[in-house]
Structure formats: structure tokens, C-alpha cells
């Protein structure tokens, strides 16, 4: 490795993951460098959420082979909260409701108590949180509210690697713009790549979110493997016209 090239932020090597008796990931290799934004495409059941949950450290996702290295640290054996404090954050697709715990408290926790009133007010304004702050987190939240709440927590946490599980699902267009804006703010998508440090990995089906967020590269996770990669918008167009199977089988991807 050339000495001027920094070690990648996230390095996944030959990752095999089982849930129960079922092997979901069958040898995934993925490298995400500082400042890079990657997109993860693929059919339902292909293992996209499994990959995110494995990186986060959710129990029940058993690594049978390979490893996940973040900032040079093998994540095996690290608890969810230890990974979070190391700099991994996630916006869930369907976060659980927690009775009695307010969104404001979740934001405070995510910021590790470092958020002052001004910063909280800015979050409130950017994401139109309003009365949501005093509500039990995710309790009766609409699709758009749940996503905005997840983004508020990520913006408070400011992780070095942010994982987004279908940030546009179940969200109307107005909310997609708000969520996309927040993702952009987090990943600093408008700055030149050399100045960015935070990285992102985004699961999307439709690609709508890419109208707001600049992604560098997309991968297709198919049958537990990363079957191909390419320019995000090109890949999405290819998939929407010809389907995943044709995409995965195409020569361009095979040659990668």
C-alpha cells in the first residue's frame, strides 16, 4: 500500500453472516474511505439490512467468516454502544417506539450531552421537530416524522460513518427533501471530496434520495454477495429498466 494513501475508514473482508441457521451474507468485500458516500442496491432479502445490522453490532447477526474493521479496529466482540462511540451511526428504516423516552432525550444521548440549547434549536428548526421533541420517540410518529427523528439523532451524534436504511421509504416528497438536506449536511456532500471526512452507506430502492445526496459509488448486493458496482445513477437506471438479474449478469459488472 502506498504510504500517502490513508487506511480506509471501513474495511469489510470476506464477510459471511448467518441469522439463525440461514446464511445471509456469503463473502462480502467492501471498502469505504473517509469522505466517501456509497449506495447499496439490491432486491429484498438480498442482505442489505443484514450488512448494516452486522456493522452496527445487532445481536443475532453471527459472523461465521471474515471480518469488519473500522478505523483499524476489528469490531468483533465490541458492543453496539462501543461501536457507536467509535463513530458508527445508523438511521433505521423502522425504529422501535420507546414509551416514556422523549425524542429530546434521544438527541441528548446521541450528542453525549454536548448539545447546547442553540444547537438543539438549530436541529429543531432544520428538521421541523417542534412538538415531536417532547413526544415518546417513534410513538405514533408518521413515516416522515420517524425519518426526521432519526436524522436529528444522527446529526446530534455526528458519526464518522453514517448508515442509512432506506431513508426515503414511506416518506412524502417534502419530507424526502428535508431528510436529504440533513444527510447532505451530515456528509458535507457539497464540499470537495478531498475536504470531506465523514462517510456514508445508503440503502435505497428507488434512488430518489440521490437527488439530494451526492454518492460516489453504488453496489448491488445480490444473493449475499456484492455482485457489481458502478456509478449510482447509471446502475439505478439499468436496474429500473432491466431488473436486478440482468444487471448482475451484465459484462460491465462481471469485469469489475
Amino acid at each position: 500500500m502506498a504510504s500517502e494513501k490513508p487506511a480506509p475508514l471501513l474495511q469489510i473482508e470476506d464477510l459471511h453472516v448467518s441469522v439463525g441457521d440461514r446464511e445471509i451474507l456469503r463473502g462480502v468485500d467492501l471498502t469505504i474511505g473517509e469522505g466517501e458516500t456509497h449506495v447499496l442496491l439490491g432486491p429484498n432479502g438480498g442482505g442489505k439490512s443484514t450488512l448494516l445490522n452486522t456493522i452496527v453490532g445487532m445481536p443475532g447477526y453471527r459472523i461465521t467468516q471474515g471480518r469488519v474493521v473500522f478505523k483499524g479496529v476489528d469490531l468483533a466482540g465490541l458492543e453496539i454502544d462501543e461501536r457507536a462511540r467509535l463513530g458508527i451511526g445508523i438511521a433505521f428504516q423502522r425504529p422501535p417506539a420507546v414509551r416514556g423516552v422523549k425524542l429530546r432525550q434521544m438527541i441528548d444521548v446521541a450528542a453525549n450531552g454536548t448539545l447546547d440549547d442553540e444547537a438543539m434549536a438549530a436541529l429543531d428548526e432544520d428538521l421541523s421537530l417542534g412538538h415531536m421533541l417532547e413526544r415518546d420517540v417513534n410513538m405514533g410518529f408518521s413515516g416522515g416524522e420517524a425519518k426526521r427523528s432519526e436524522m436529528a439523532q444522527l446529526l446530534a451524534q455526528m458519526p464518522d460513518l453514517a448508515l442509512f436504511d432506506e431513508p426515503e421509504s414511506g416518506v412524502d416528497l417534502d419530507n424526502i427533501a428535508v431528510v436529504g438536506g440533513a444527510m447532505n449536511a451530515l456528509l458535507k456532500g457539497e464540499e470537495r471530496i478531498a475536504e470531506r471526512t465523514r462517510a456514508g452507506l445508503i440503502i435505497t430502492h428507488t434512488g430518489h434520495i440521490l437527488e439530494y445526496v451526492n454518492a460516489d459509488v453504488a453496489h448491488v448486493l445480490y444473493s449475499g454477495r456484492l455482485a457489481c458496482k458502478g456509478n449510482p445513477l447509471d446502475l439505478i437506471e439499468e436496474i429500473s429498466s432491466h431488473g436486478y438479474e440482468a444487471c448482475v449478469g451484465c459484462k460491465l459488472c462481471q469485469s469489475l
Binding site: I80, D81, A84, F92, P96, G100, V101, M106, Q153, Q157
Partner: peptide, 21 residues
């Protein structure tokens, strides 16, 4: 687990949820 993904250790997550309960 949800609270832990925001950086809260397990015991603190449990007591926060119990307090909320």
C-alpha cells in the same frame, strides 16, 4: 439496542427505559 446505537451503555439504556416506563 436502539438506545445503545446512540452510544448509551446497556445498563444505562435499561435504566433510562425503566425510568421512562
Amino acid at each position: 439496542y436502539y438506545l445503545m446505537t446512540r452510544g448509551l451503555p446497556k445498563d444505562e439504556a435499561i435504566s433510562m427505559i425503566t425510568r421512562g416506563f
